[in-house]
Design a binder for these strands. Structure first.
Lengths: 332, 332
DNA sequence: CTGAAAGCGCTAACAG
DNA sequence: CTGTTAGCGCTTTCAG
């Protein structure tokens, strides 16, 4: 907790002025190579680390960005964060993480804090893909929404193309020869659930097909998956594949179907959504699933933010394609 | 991206000097109430937010802390982070999140960055509880290790008392009348695996018992749990309970035992470790498990850090007790 | 090629 | 009670 080394100390040791030392250390100006070297050695020797506050006070840039997760930090936020860190870290930027816990008060408080810290930009993320009210209007720094999207079309949002994911799932099931496909997903009022189901139905319709039974809406849980299996079996509809709204649902379904004597994928093929490692690998057999590439979304959002910071902001919603990861649950 | 409002603008609008405005806004000095009010209104009107960089340049405090996760951000980091945020957010401190991804180079880079940002303190965390080399020596700011611990006993570490968790698990199984208890856990060379197993064996020994079969070491996966079930069944040892090193192992075991016709908990009672929501709830029946209270660890670590920042650093390893969460897998 | 000086926005003495 | 002044540590003209 000793007083930190300042650039003037470095300058003194190197026998130059602070201005010269600054130039030497930042590679600016036109200096004699030996002077530059002398300063660098002095800095090294003293363990000099520039004071970011002082620098940013001067330059107006802080090389920091804030990341506000509106819903509590969760499973989805991590890959987003990692992706963003990836893109920002390379540019020497640090991230302030703020967990607003779904509380508007906290959210505004954090926003204020971030502005006082003069972050260069803000990434807003959340647990649901549904559009949300902008976090603020006329903010002095660029904002990019990741995963979640802003209701204001002028804002920049980077989101997964969930409909694309559904299409891939259905096409894959069709490709492995299934025709009597059922859909089991989360709550009907949940944006992701309805978007995914709708797209799946449309994809079937485009092939002249319909779901084997009306889409089953429930919860995002294994328990619901197990329950849904019972429903499917009791309808007598001869389902040969199920596309689930989440890996958890799929897993519950797999378990219950297996218990009821159905063999996966021979009797029923299964596709999940999220490609959540512990779920798809724990499932028996391992689960084919749709990956939203959250890390890529985080990375793209960060890149968009950097672009905006550098003066070329993007607008509107950028939907990124999903990827199907085939595993044993749909193996032919 | 307009130039931000400065305190001198506020002062001008309120018709006072900047010094007075500063005092008014920070509740310092002795001002006439009406003056204070006038300044506050002016600040409000202009949407003034103090520049943190300028302030910290003056005061030497930044009210920021860095959190370095040595291993990649994972499931364990989230609750730790939430707990830390909780304790720090109250004190108006912001967190820089840095993911070193298990790369010493990145780690040192981040450390340097954090120091240049003049953070008031640093929390180091990771995926394994095993002691690690200190992140640096003679650092100008206090450091607290959370979950992970530092090999230097002079450093402050806040860790889960995993042995305590094991004791609770075994005592619970004994309390529900089990005597032929087996232990199935992760890799033998993994610190958590061995600590947990050792403590469980010791607890049994204290009751004059031994594990029903020699402790089974394997991986931290459901697959291993399933495999272990096969081993247990084939030994012919009449096991009436299994304490697993993780919820995933327990879940695999539950699945395989059920499939083999054993009923849980009637024939075999099961206790997991981690109390990971999706695992314990997805398990059939729901899994009794040991909770390390990661959020509490994060909170405590942050509190220790705040104490250190305020001049009263703690030293050594602080082990926090675990908690057993009973569910159907051990119901009597 | 290098030094001197000004100033980023704020706080903290110290006068008045 | 309020204003003035002097920096915090750094970058950046502008002279020399």
């Amino acid at each position: 907790m000793d007083r930190a080394v300042t650039i003037s100390q470095v300058a003194a040791l190197a026998g130059v002025s602070t201005g010269t030392a600054s130039k030497a250390l930042n590679g600016r100006g036109a200096l004699r190579p030996e002077t530059r070297l002398r300063v660098q050695q002095a800095a090294e020797q003293l363990g000099f680390v520039a004071n970011a506050a002082a620098r940013s006070l001067q330059t107006g840039r802080t090389y920091t960005v804030g990341m506000i997760t509106t819903d509590s930090i969760g499973r989805f936020s991590i890959p987003l964060l990692i992706g963003a860190e990836d893109a920002l870290g390379a540019g020497q930027m640090s991230i302030f993480l703020c967990d607003a816990r779904d509380d508007p008060i906290r959210e505004q408080y954090y926003l204020r804090t971030l502005l006082s810290r003069k972050v260069d930009g803000i990434i807003v993320t959340g647990r649901r893909t549904q559009a949300r009210a902008p976090i603020g209007v006329g903010l002095p720094v660029p904002v990019v929404y990741a995963f979640i999207s802003s209701a204001d079309p002028a804002d920049c949002s980077v989101v997964p193309d969930e409909a694309d994911g559904s299409r891939r799932a259905i096409r894959h099931l069709l490709a492995v020869g299934r025709r009597r496909i059922a859909l089991v997903t989360g709550p009907e009022h949940h944006h992701s659930a309805s978007v995914r189901a709708r797209a799946a139905e449309d994809t079937l319709a485009a092939e002249g097909l319909r779901p084997a039974v009306p889409t089953l809406y429930g919860e995002w849980s294994e328990a619901w998956g197990r329950q849904a299996a019972g429903i499917l079996l009791s309808t007598g509809a001869d389902v040969d594949a199920v596309f689930c709204g989440s890996d958890q649902i799929a897993r519950g379904l797999a378990e219950a179907l297996t218990k009821a004597g159905r063999e996966i994928p021979r009797d029923v093929a299964l596709v999940g959504f999220d490609n959540w490692d512990v779920m798809v690998e724990g499932c028996q057999p391992p689960l084919t699933s749709i990956d939203m590439d959250l890390e890529g979304i985080g990375r793209t959002a960060a890149e968009q933010l950097l672009a905006a910071i550098n003066g070329t902001p993007a607008h509107g919603q950028h939907a990124r394609p999903c990827r199907l990861v085939p595993r044993a649950s749909t193996a032919v």
